[in-house]
């Protein structure tokens, strides 16, 4: 069965025909060439395919493309802009919070969702937010550091903005 869907992906509406069994992950990677989200296990255990749907992190391997009809989907490619990186990405770079990089797009999307919901997380809250994102290389410590730093940077930017107005 084929479905016509309309999905907002990284801020732009996309119309497409997808078969019922097409996963959101395959739709993003194969149909839209957005290869940032990775398939690590296909079973919702590793988090490498994490993207945000209506602002919430989900495993794109466990959602059908047709289920995303009408939804707002954000992938790692939608972060930052032509001028620069998102503060979360920036913090990952500065902290060398990555090694092979395969888990990183998913990790960053989990972090992004956390910071939108909770701009001042504790380390424990950061750990919980990324405990569904497996990483075999880094030992996680730097990733937690990076997310804490990104939160701090965002708060600093926010307070300076308020102060300027």
């Amino acid at each position: 069965m084929i479905h016509n869907i309309r999905v907002k992906v990284n801020g732009e509406w996309v119309e497409a025909c997808v078969p019922s069994h097409r996963r959101l992950l395959d739709f993003l990677r194969e149909d839209l060439d957005l290869i940032g989200a990775k398939e690590g296990c296909g079973g919702g255990e590793c988090g490498a395919c994490t993207v945000l749907v209506n602002g919430e992190p989900i495993n794109a391997c466990l959602m059908l493309a047709v289920e995303a009809d009408g939804a707002d989907v954000l992938t790692v490619e939608g972060l930052g802009d032509a001028d620069g990186l998102d503060p979360v990405q920036e913090a990952f770079v500065e902290n060398s919070a990555l090694q092979c990089g395969y888990c990183i797009p998913g990790m960053i999307m989990s972090a992004k969702a956390l910071l939108v919901r909770n701009p001042s997380p504790t380390r424990e809250e950061v750990v919980e937010a990324i405990s569904g994102n497996l990483c075999r290389c880094t030992g996680y410590a730097r990733i937690v550091d990076a997310i804490m730093q990104a939160a701090e940077a965002a708060r600093a930017a926010e307070s300076s903005k308020v102060g300027g107005e």
Binding site: G36, A37, T75, V76, L85, Q89, F92, V93, S96, G101
Partner: peptide
């Protein structure tokens, strides 16, 4: 800073 970092954080 790692020279592969930017590519890896942007996907």
């Amino acid at each position: 800073v790692r020279n592969d970092a930017r590519e890896k954080v942007t996907g």
